[in-house]
Design a protein around this nucleic acid. Structure first.
Length: 488
RNA sequence: CGGGGCAUAGCGCAGUCCGGUUAGCGCACUUGGUUUGGGACCAAGGGGUCGCAGGUUCGAAUCCUGCUGCCCCGACCA
């Protein structure tokens, strides 16, 4: 089969594309900029989705579903918002096709033009706030804590599987609150949920921060972000949570009566993570042999390969081991395919990033042992069958922890504090990674740096320590460090 | 939207410069057999409007014109 993948050193983006394709995560589709998410890739997303959904519900949220289409007029009600998304919207103009009179298949029926064009949602704030107006009258209706799992479309010029596609899957939470403080607390709560998910489930360390005015979501007063660092030294915005103030409430006239019978506009948040997380997962852990998955999100955590081939005796043993592991909640697959040899299977499962492989060999079995191979380190161990269940269970949590630690170490190594602009440019250019430095707080400086170096202001860390310093660009005083990087 | 490349079997490619039998190779696929502790081997098969539309020619995958799609690199973005 010879499914070799390009090495990271040779061509990082080709390496990424090879993994997506050869691990069976996604295919290019017939539609430009859109991908087909294949079952294995979708299974990873489902695991992410299931966990996030639990976390949202544990924090009091419920799911609902709003329409794919948004009347064009809605989008223009919030000035910042429309400005942010106008350039990348798909628009529905007609509702019918007809046979081409010239005989070339079908054409759009010119008589079926819509009176008001519909926008395919790039995000749902507008349609949701239009709806919330009817749902909210009193402070007793608040808070409204709703999430939806949906697809959205942003007509991107350049796309990459999972990282940036024209259509993507995500969740978007939209909440309404009686006070600014409560809405802000909600935005921060979700920010915490995202960070916990990234670290504890994806084993992807993130910097929690807030965005500069320039990088803020279109229509938000504050945007919280989790920023991850990929192996090529580029930053990935992995999730955002926005405090929307009263902007959408004012745009859509959503008011409520408080307990003093006074009318006020509602305070809002919105927050989302998308299938982009799958891209982040790939680029955080994988190596030149293929995908590496953290056990908590791996669709298959353990694969059992009979050696040299499936035989009744081996299968019986495999079923027995699989039964033990499954009873502990471990996701196990037994590979009974007789047409492929063990070596082929080993390579294949390494490509697919399955955390633990059990090589159930005839000769090993005679000695009551089994070969255990871990994907992340490639280490192989011979383990007694008597304690295989507990061994595998603790190995899975070791792998999960080890992946996180390794990613943290990488981030530490590629986070550089700089004190002046020359150092800044040198690090951005040669080393990459996060650059921690002083900034004068102005959009002007931020844009100049971006223009000069292609590095963007990723975030102002929430836990930044107070420290007097000078802006690397303007020399003006600054009281905390911020994070710059080249980003996806 | 700029710059570069590519389009031939499911995938990867050769053939195109210099037109000429029946369009070929590797992988994959089907069947049979032999194998089997790190990507097995042998044999026999199936699979193609050579991206699309015109044109030149006795004859076009090959030459000419136009179109379309995709990939890579840049500017915009989760």
């Amino acid at each position: 089969m010879a499914k070799e993948i390009t090495s990271r050193a040779e061509n990082y983006s080709q390496w990424y594309n090879d993994i997506v394709k050869k691990a069976g995560l996604a295919d290019n589709s017939a539609v430009r900029g859109c991908m087909v998410i294949k079952p294995y890739g979708y299974a990873i997303w489902e695991n992410m989705k299931d966990q996030l959904d639990r976390m949202f519900k544990d924090t009091g949220h419920v799911n609902a579903y709003f329409p794919l289409f948004i009347p064009k007029s809605f989008l223009s009600k919030e000035a910042q918002h429309v400005e942010g998304f106008a350039k990348e919207c798909a628009v529905v103009t007609h509702h019918r096709l007809m046979n081409d009179p010239a005989g070339h298949g079908v054409i759009v029926d010119p008589a079926a033009k819509l009176e008001e064009e519909l926008i395919v949602r790039p995000t749902s704030e507008t349609i949701i706030w239009h709806t919330y107006k009817d749902w909210i009258q009193s402070y007793r209706d608040l808070p409204l804590l709703i999430n939806q799992w949906a697809n959205v479309v942003r007509w991107e010029m350049r796309t990459r599987p999972f990282l940036r596609t024209a259509e993507f899957l995500w969740q978007e939470g939209h909440t309404a609150h009686a006070t600014a403080a409560e809405a802000m607390a909600e935005a921060r709560l979700i920010h915490d949920v995202y960070a916990e998910f990234a670290e504890q489930y994806m084993a992807m360390p993130v910097i929690k921060g807030y965005k500069s005015e320039n990088e803020r979501f279109a229509g938000a007063d504050e945007t919280f972000t989790i920023e991850a660092l990929m192996q090529d030294g580029k930053a990935l915005q992995a999730g955002t949570s926005h405090f929307l103030g009263q902007n959408f409430a004012k745009a859509f006239d959503v008011t409520f009566l408080n307990d003093k019978n006074e009318s006020d506009y509602v305070w809002a948040t919105s927050w989302g993570v998308s299938t982009r997380l799958v891209g982040g997962l790939i680029m955080t852990h994988s190596d030149d042999d293929g995908l590496v998955l953290p056990p908590r999100l791996a669709p298959i955590q353990v694969v059992i390969v009979p050696i040299p081939k499936p035989e009744p005796e081996l299968l019986e043993k495999a079923e027995q081991i699989a039964g033990l592991l499954k009873s502990m909640g471990i996701r196990v697959k037994i590979d009974m395919d007789e047409t492929k040899r063990p070596g082929f299977k080993f390579a294949e499962y390494e490509m697919k990033g399955i955390p633990v492989r059990l090589g159930l060999g005839k000769r090993d079995l005679e000695q009551n042992v089994i070969e255990v191979a871990r994907r992340d380190t490639k280490e192989k161990m011979s383990v007694s069958l008597d304690r295989i269940d507990s061994f595998v269970q603790s190995l899975l949590s070791d792998i999960q922890a080890s992946l996180l630690q390794k990613a943290k170490d990488f981030r530490t190594e590629y986070t550089t504090e700089v004190e002046n602009y020359d150092q800044f440019k040198e690090v951005i250019e040669d080393k990459g990674g996060f650059v921690s430095c002083h900034w004068d707080g102005t959009t002007e400086t931020e844009l100049k740096i971006k223009e000069d170096t292609k590095a963007t202001l990723r975030c102002i860390p929430v836990d930044a320590v107070e420290e007097q310093g000078k802006c690397i660009y303007s020399g003006k005083p600054s009281n905390k460090r911020v994070i710059f990087a080249k980003a996806y």
